[in-house]
């Protein structure tokens, strides 16, 4: 599903070059659930941004579902992301002016439209995560756990091949976070989705099929 070779993302800060991400080789199979761990500053979020096409790599090859994401133009990367990738952010990033249902539908709107079928799927997904009676609630009317589950549903609405989750448990208590993660894994298993999750939490990482320490993928200097 994911194939990365000799990936580097370098930012310039004045005359200084800062390496934000450095991965020699990384492969993730279709349907595999992988946890990415490592110290802060290793570029875990940058890696997810590159895989999702939000950021272009400075060098190296990044293929997702056999598409060379790095070589795509911006509009194509946006479209590709909308159609093939679902993202769960650390801060969940729901849009406050929109209800839970509308937040879930937003992902579909940009991918081509949220018709009645998509709406039904959104309602089903929200029901599945226990928010059937909260679909018209706004993010500020929900608990952190509920917001997290809405974010999960939004990532799943377009039936993505790949789900990228950046510290999806946020600052929640372990029990609530574990429950959300269980739901994510359950749906991903059922629908044969690939999951790549960045986490600091060893217990969450253990729930995945495989754990990769990003520091071990860096080019030897």
């Amino acid at each position: 599903m994911i194939r990365i070779r000799n990936l580097k993302k370098v930012y310039r800060r004045g005359d200084e070059e800062v390496v934000a991400c450095d991965v020699t080789a990384l492969d993730v199979e279709r349907g595999e659930h992988v946890a990415i761990v490592g110290k802060s500053g290793l570029g875990k979020t940058t890696l997810l941004n590159i895989v999702s096409g939000i950021v272009r790599p400075t060098s190296g090859e990044v293929r997702v579902a056999d598409v060379d994401v790095g070589s795509l133009g911006e509009a194509k990367r946006d479209r590709f992301r909308g159609e093939h990738i679902g993202i769960v952010f650390q801060t969940f990033n729901l849009l406050v002016p929109f209800t839970a249902l509308e937040n879930v539908l937003l992902g579909a709107v940009f991918a081509g439209g949220a018709d009645a079928t998509v709406r039904d799927r959104a309602v089903r997904l929200l029901g599945r995560v226990g928010l059937g009676d909260r679909i018209d609630h706004y993010p500020n009317q929900m608990s952190v756990g509920q917001v997290q589950r809405v974010a999960l549903c939004r990532a799943l609405i377009n039936g993505p091949d790949l789900i990228l989750a950046d510290e999806p448990l946020g600052n929640q208590d372990r029990e609530t976070g574990a429950e959300a993660l269980r739901v994510l894994r359950e749906i991903a298993e059922e629908e044969k989705r690939t999951v790549v999750m960045v986490t600091h939490d060893p217990a969450s990482a253990e729930l995945m099929h495989r754990t990769i320490d990003l520091s071990e993928l860096r080019t030897a200097s």
């Binding site: 946006d78 479209r79 909308g82 849009l95 992902g107 940009f110």
Partner: peptide, 16 residues
């Protein structure tokens, strides 16, 4: 900016 960045991350193109 954040709101737009979130929409872009969800697949919104610049044209959208």
């Amino acid at each position: 900016r954040r709101e737009i960045a979130i929409m872009r991350s969800l697949g919104a193109r610049r044209s959208q």
